[in-house]
Structure formats: C-alpha cells, structure tokens
Amino acid sequence: MRLKFLIPLSVFALLLVLLGVGLKLDPREVPSPFIGKPAPPFALPTVHAAAQTLSSGEFQGQVSLLNVWASWCVSCRQEHPLLLQLSKTGLVPIYGLNYKDERPAALAWLDRFGDPYRASAFDADGKTGIDWGVYGVPETFVIDRKGIIRYKFTGPLTEEALEKKLLPLVRTLQEEAS
C-alpha cells in the first residue's frame, strides 16, 4: 500500500540515470548500417584523370581506408594534416571519395593542402556517397581484406580517434588474415 507512493520517485530515479547516460552520448551520430557488410560497389573516374577508374574492387586483398572529402568542406581541412601524416607512415592505404565536388576545385585543393590519397574517386552527383550512407562530410570507413566495411567515423578525424579506434582496428584486421 505504502509502496505505491514510491513509484513516482523510482521512475524519476530511472529517468535521471538515463539522462545522465544521455549526457555522454552524441544524439547526432547515425550508425552506419553497412558495418559488417560488403562495401557497396562503385566504379568512378578518379579526380586526377577522367579516363581512369577507381572501383570498389580495389578494396579486395588489403585493409584500406576510404575517406569522403570535398573541397567545399571546411572541416575536411581540419583533419587533413592527420591524413597526410598517416599516408606518410604507409601503415594503411587511404582512398578518397571526392563527394559532390568540381574537378578543378578538387585538384586545386589537393595541390594546396597535399594529397594523402592513393586515388580519389570523383563522385560528382553524390550517388555513390548516398549508396555508402554518407551524410556528413568528412567520413572515414575502415574496410577489411574481403572488402567488408568494419567501421565508420563521421566528422573530422581527431588524433585521439585515430590512435584509439582506427589504427588499432586496422592493425588487428591486418593481422587477422595474414
């Protein structure tokens, strides 16, 4: 009988815990449904040469990163030095997906800030981006040897994310199959 008066308080306590946990979550982040699934196929011309094609077949047989970028994207500039650094170490090949950009602008951007990509696919109309579930440039995918997407990072990469999440994952994936 008395217990029923405790119901509001207990429900509220639960709510408090929930809100407390909520403070640590990012409500904007949308998890990718592609984790654990094969990379959506594409075959696009590269930024550097319209005649050359970069296709999702490239991801077979090696662990790789796919970084979605654009010259109009301000926060891409923020993560760019990290990508350059990473490409210099040669730990993992980085591919680019140049999303909804114009070729001269993209080329000028790479010229100015440096080109960390083994190759960049030129996705002018953004269809491939949509196929990959891109919603906020920059985004970075980790793809394993079998061409399966294992992880996605949305937003500009940080040193912390790179050191704690991406690189350890890349290493285990590389060891996994060798």
């Binding site: 008066f5 509001p8 308080l9 509220f12 306590a13 408090l16």
Partner: peptide
Amino acid sequence: VIGGSLFLYALRAP
C-alpha cells in the same frame, strides 16, 4: 528539486 519533492511525497502522501 524533483527528487526531493517526490521523496517528500512518498513520505507524506500516505
């Protein structure tokens, strides 16, 4: 504020 008042409620309402 809320927890305190609901606690008071649990004490006094019966």
